[in-house]
Write a protein that binds this DNA or RNA. Structure first.
Lengths: 106, 106
DNA sequence: TATAAGCACAACCATTTGGTTGCCCAAATA
DNA sequence: TATTTGGGCAACCAAATGGTTGTGCTTATA
């Protein structure tokens, strides 16, 4: 198995998705992120590490605290992949339309 | 660890993403999907199983062959999650805009 | 009918994942 | 200064992941 570190891996885990949404409201330190999760601080720290390695967030030291900020622009990669996957799909609809158009005599 | 079977899991693996894109051009049987992947047929079959369990594709028996069809509409769940995550982000931009608007006297 | 094609099932494997606990360190705060 | 508070590091764990090989079964095809 190979360790994958991309956006798709970042958003694969539900906890990480919640973290991203939480961070979408603004930067937070680890303790702040960990609130309302029934999960240990270490588990959160690991998710933060993964998100950072995936390029989804950046971490800034500030005194003894560590503030995390989401890079929501990174999600563009997901959007463009979805768009790419549906490209032919849409073309097929276009073709179907054209076919129905061409074959309809009434 | 808990076995997660959702769209995010489906698209987390690069091989599965390629399979989805391949299927976006139309249904294929397992052998057809497996072409051009440097991977065993069994590995492909496992990915197909996962994709099916995630609801990303459906499989139809046809004689001795098994045709797979992608459910590209399922990707809407990804799009809406991304949109939801960026909602506040956009609002923040709006707020910033408003703030700049309100505070600019020149 | 003999053979090839398409696939299922099972066993096996190394690595990753997602979580835990325990200990410890440095920076704020009372 | 004593004590919280925020967090790092390492070890450990069970389960999931992504792959392999081998065997065998059924459906097409030569």
């Amino acid at each position: 198995m190979i360790e994958r570190r991309d956006v798709f891996q970042a958003i694969a885990d539900p906890t990480r998705r919640m973290i991203i949404q939480k961070l979408s409201r603004g930067p937070l330190n680890l303790a702040g992120i960990g609130e309302d999760f029934g999960i240990s601080r270490q588990a959160i720290a690991k998710h933060i590490k993964v998100l950072n390695e995936c390029g989804m967030i950046s971490v800034t030291q500030k005194g003894r605290e560590q503030f995390c900020e989401a890079h929501l622009g990174k999600l563009d990669e997901v959007l463009s992949w979805v768009a790419e996957s549906r490209k032919v799909w849409n073309q097929r609809f276009d073709k179907l339309e054209k076919f129905l158009d061409d074959t309809s005599s009434e």
